[in-house]
């Protein structure tokens, strides 16, 4: 049985402070945890963790069709079957729009002359890096317009689990993506705890409810942190009532603090820059660990 406890930081809404929370927990955890950045299409952890890349690999996120002009007889069968409008015919030749092609391969199967080949699609890179807190980080970059972010997230996680095992780390701290789609689903797979970072806005509460549904589907234990908690006390209260009704443990309120943006500007982690916030993150980290540990014992 795997004893590595994964804590994934999610929010639903973007910009609530996932990365600041994940980096602060990693800072406090030190060598106890491996850090994974699973927000692969807008990753930011590397900007403050000072990664020293140990290993870099290319990510192929599926396939893309390629037409050989020499072999093509311009019969148009490929264009007929393509459901993604990826094949166009002009000036007497058929061409494929890489951005629209989803890589299903249907065209290559119906081409009577074998003029279409499915090629691996280079859509990103992934890395293993040493980081400033003495531990390591698994991270990635999805190229613009990239497909298959879920698969890249799975790759980042697989590496992170392996690194944790090799280095004897008990925990994995995963910075997730906003939304509820494939990268979020992929980041939840195997996670024991979902640390939900929200803010007291109507938008964030709405989005929190949706991501909670996905968290429940994966049987991760949800925990709650309300960031910028004093921006709207009434909505903050509403979130707490919601959390209570859903039996989600509310770990902390973090009042609005310019230290978040200031530390980012210095490429530093907010918990290493601000003693008051460090104290809050210490209690969050202890509690998250405790819940993650108990989920393994049960």
């Amino acid at each position: 049985m795997d004893s590595i406890r994964e804590i994934v930081v999610l929010s639903g809404k973007g910009g609530t402070g996932k990365t600041s929370v994940a980096s602060s927990l990693a800072y406090l955890a030190g060598k106890e945890a491996i850090l994974a950045d699973c927000d692969v299409d807008a990753s930011n952890l590397h900007l403050i963790m000072g990664p020293d890349i140990i290993k870099k690999e290319l990510f192929y996120g599926g396939e893309v069709a390629q037409i050989d002009i020499e072999t093509c007889i311009q019969c148009g069968k490929c264009k007929e079957v393509c459901r993604f409008d990826a094949i166009s015919f002009s000036a007497g030749v058929h061409t494929i729009d890489n951005l629209s092609c989803e890589g299903c391969g249907y065209c290559s199967r119906v081409c009577p002359t074998g003029a279409i080949t499915m090629m691996p699609r280079l859509s990103g890179e992934f890395y293993i890096s040493g980081i400033r807190n003495g531990s390591q980080m698994s991270h990635a970059k999805l190229f613009a317009g990239g497909e298959n972010s879920g698969k890249l997230v799975a790759t980042v996680k697989k590496n992170a689990y392996r690194m944790a095992k090799e280095r004897g780390c008990d925990y994995l701290i995963t910075d997730g993506a906003p939304g509820i789609g494939c990268p979020v689903v992929s980041s939840l797979s195997g996670a024991k705890v979902a640390l939900l970072v929200t803010e007291p806005t109507m938008s964030a509460l709405h989005d929190l409810k949706r991501v909670l549904f996905v968290v429940r589907r994966f049987n991760a234990i949800p925990l709650l942190v309300i960031n910028k908690s004093d921006i709207n006390e009434a909505v903050s209260e509403e979130i707490k009532i919601f959390a209570k009704s859903e039996k989600i443990e509310h770990l902390a309120d973090i009042p609005f603090n310019t230290a978040f943006v200031e530390s980012m500007g210095k490429a530093r982690i907010v918990a290493e820059e601000n003693q008051f916030l460090k104290g809050i993150f210490e209690s969050v980290w202890e509690k998250a660990k405790e819940v993650a540990d108990s989920s393994v014992q049960n």
Binding site: G14, D41, A42, L99, L142, A144, G145, G146, E147, S149, A177, P178, G179, G181
Partner: peptide
Amino acid sequence: SPPGTSCSMVASTG
């Protein structure tokens, strides 16, 4: 449009 720069952003803005 959705955040990010992956397929959903391309489908929304392209």
